[in-house]
């Protein structure tokens, strides 16, 4: 397969009002299908969260990763996404989450490690524009001198790749540690004693409102990749995602797929 360049594609931007965690899971799934089928153009989707959530990776065990009682006590919804990787603790306004859905030609011939780094080069540039010296830390982190900023995950389906990232904008580390179980073994080769110390959010590093950081990121993407067309979710697309959210992503069978 020949590799395509960012500029070879006409990128669309989806950035709508806040949506529920399960709908976000379903939208990634539907949009990956639609880009694979050529019925949706390559898209950057910025997420807005309607409520707090723990988003588990596809291969994580619910019991091992989440304190279900603590999550319930805090009113936090626990969902499972279609990509691998680790659990994310989300509170509306505290993270910046985005998905890039692209033809897999964009990363053709790359190793997974190269593909992860490639898909976030524009973010490294955007962060530099905000005065943050950030870099990619394999396998799937964006990090800085002060600590980790973001984690990425990819999923592939037929001719398309989904690359989604959650960046810490602000974080209630104490609450995160009540809800997520982060064992010692996981941190064994990280050289840090706690999960909270590993993360340093964008708010403290930029001093900018979240919306302004997002605006700068969108502008960087637009300039670097030759444009970004404002788009909305089609009625059919949204309806399919709502059905999938209800019938799959909101079900205990999916959330506890690995109990």
């Amino acid at each position: 397969m020949n590799r395509s360049q960012w500029q070879d594609h006409r990128w669309h931007l989806i950035h709508t009002q806040a949506q529920s965690p399960v709908l976000h899971m379903a939208l990634d799934d539907v949009m990956l299908d639609d880009v694979a089928n050529g019925v949706r153009p390559p898209t950057l989707r910025i997420w807005e969260w309607a409520g707090p959530a723990v988003v588990m990776g596809r291969f994580q065990s619910l019991r091992n990763e989440v304190d279900a009682q603590a999550a319930q006590d805090h009113g936090i919804e626990v969902v499972r996404r279609i990509s691998g990787g680790g659990a994310m603790f989300i509170e509306p306004g505290n993270t910046i989450t985005y998905s890039i859905v692209a033809p897999v030609s964009l990363v053709a011939g790359m190793t997974f490690e190269q593909a992860y780094e490639f898909m976030d080069q524009w973010v490294i540039q955007a962060l530099a524009g905000l005065g943050i010296k950030a870099w990619y830390q394999p396998l799937n982190d964006i990090t800085s001198e002060a600590g980790k900023i973001a984690g990425a995950a990819q999923a592939r389906r037929r001719g398309a790749v989904l690359h989604h990232v959650t960046m810490a904008y602000d974080i209630d580390a104490a609450k995160m540690l009540q809800v997520l179980r982060v064992g010692r073994e996981k941190l064994s080769d990280k050289g840090t004693a706690s999960a909270a110390k590993r993360v340093d959010p964008l708010r403290s590093q930029t001093g900018l409102p979240r919306a302004q950081v997002i605006k700068h990121m969108i502008e960087t993407f637009r300039q670097r990749h030759g444009g970004l067309v404002a788009d909305t979710l089609g009625a059919d697309e949204l309806a399919r995602a709502q059905t999938l959210a209800r019938e799959r992503f909101a079900t205990p069978e999916w959330t506890a797929l690995l109990p």
Partner: peptide, 15 residues
């Protein structure tokens, strides 16, 4: 046996 973790696998059914 159940293997789990924060790794990546394609296809997912390989697990």
């Amino acid at each position: 046996v159940q293997v789990s973790g924060d790794f990546f696998l394609e296809p997912a059914s390989a697990l």
